[in-house]
C-alpha cells in the first residue's frame, strides 16, 4: 500500500508538476513577474473588449458586425490585405532570390532598406505614399494617363498595405533560400531538368513553408494597419473604408459597443493567423528535418 501510494504520488507529481526540475534559480519570480506584466498590460485590457461586447448579446453582435458598411469594410480589408500579401509573395520572392543568388552594386544597401517599413512610423509612410501616389504626385502623375487613380481608391489602400507587408516575405524566404542545398539543384540539372523545372519541382516546394509564413505575416500586418492607410484611402464608406478606420469612425459616433464588436472580430482573426503561422513554422521545421534525413 505504502509502496503503491508512493508510486502513485510520484506519477501524479510528474503529471501535475508545473515545470521540469532545473537547478537554475528564479523560476518562481520570473513566472510571477511575467504573468503579472502580461495580465496588467495585455490580458485585462484585452478582456475588457470581450466584456464590452458581451453586453451586446449575440443577435445584436451579429447585426453590428454584418451591417452593410461593416461587411464592406471587412471585404475591403481582407481583399486588399490578401492582394498586398500576394504581391509581396511574388515580388518579395524575386527580391529575396536576387539578394541571395546574384550580386550587383549596392546590394548590401538594398538588403538593409528592405526593412524600412518595419522601422518607419506608419504616419510618415502614410503621408509619403499619399504624396507620391496622388494625382499630382511623382507616381500618380504617371498612372493618371493610364486611367489608374491610386490615392483615395482601393488601389491606394492596396499600395499602402503592400508597403507595410513588404519585408515579411523577403525576410522569411531569404534564409530558406540560403539554406537550400545546392546539391539538390545540381542533381536535378544532372537528371536533365531545365532551370524552370528545377525551380518548380525542387526549389519552390522546399521554400514553400517559408513563403507561406511570409505571406501570412504580411497579411496579418496589413489587416491591422491604420496609420499609413488613413491618409491614402479617402475613407469612403462602402468603398475605401478599412476595418480599423471603421472602428475609429464608430468611436466618433459614440458607438462603443459597435466598435468593440468589430474589434473582437479583428482580434479573433489575428488569433487565427497567429495560430496558422505557428503551424506553418512547425510544418517548415518538420519539412526540413525530413529533407535532411
Amino acid at each position: 500500500m505504502s509502496q503503491g501510494g508512493g508510486r502513485r504520488a510520484r506519477t501524479l507529481n510528474r503529471a501535475f508538476a508545473l515545470k521540469r526540475h532545473s537547478v537554475l534559480p528564479g523560476f518562481g519570480w520570473t513566472l510571477g513577474c511575467t504573468l503579472l506584466y502580461l495580465c496588467l498590460l495585455v490580458l485585462i485590457p484585452l478582456s475588457l473588449l470581450f466584456f464590452r461586447t458581451a453586453g451586446l448579446g449575440w443577435s445584436d453582435f451579429w447585426s453590428a458586425v454584418t451591417a452593410p458598411r461593416v461587411a464592406a469594410s471587412f471585404k475591403l480589408s481582407f481583399a486588399a490585405s490578401g492582394l498586398g500579401a500576394a504581391l509581396n509573395a511574388v515580388f518579395g520572392f524575386i527580391v529575396a532570390w536576387t539578394l541571395v543568388r546574384y550580386s550587383f552594386p549596392g546590394k548590401r544597401l538594398i538588403d538593409a532598406t528592405v526593412d524600412l517599413p518595419f522601422a518607419l512610423p506608419t504616419a510618415v509612410s502614410g503621408i509619403a505614399l499619399t504624396t507620391v501616389y496622388s494625382r499630382t504626385g511623382w507616381i500618380g502623375q504617371l498612372l493618371e494617363p493610364l486611367g489608374i487613380q491610386a490615392a483615395f481608391t482601393p488601389v491606394g489602400v492596396t499600395v499602402a498595405l503592400t508597403f507595410v507587408g513588404l519585408p515579411f516575405v523577403v525576410r522569411a524566404v531569404q534564409p530558406a533560400l540560403q539554406d537550400l542545398d545546392p546539391e539538390a539543384e545540381e542533381a536535378a540539372a544532372t537528371l536533365g531538368a531545365g532551370r524552370w523545372q528545377t525551380f518548380y519541382r525542387v526549389i519552390l516546394p522546399t521554400v514553400m513553408p517559408a513563403l507561406l509564413t511570409g505571406f501570412a505575416l504580411a497579411f496579418a500586418r496589413a489587416l491591422g494597419e491604420y496609420g499609413s492607410v488613413v491618409f491614402i484611402s479617402g475613407n469612403m464608406p462602402m468603398r475605401t473604408e478599412i476595418v480599423p478606420l471603421l472602428i475609429v469612425s464608430e468611436l466618433e459616433q459614440y458607438d462603443y459597443q459597435g466598435a468593440a464588436a468589430i474589434a473582437v472580430v479583428m482580434l479573433v482573426a489575428s488569433f487565427v493567423i497567429l495560430l496558422l503561422i505557428n503551424l506553418l513554422q512547425w510544418w517548415g521545421a518538420r519539412h526540413q528535418r525530413r529533407e535532411g534525413v
Partner: peptide, 12 residues
Amino acid sequence: TELFRRVPVLDS
C-alpha cells in the same frame, strides 16, 4: 444622394 455619389474622398 446624388450629391454624395459625386464625392470621391470623404475625409473625417
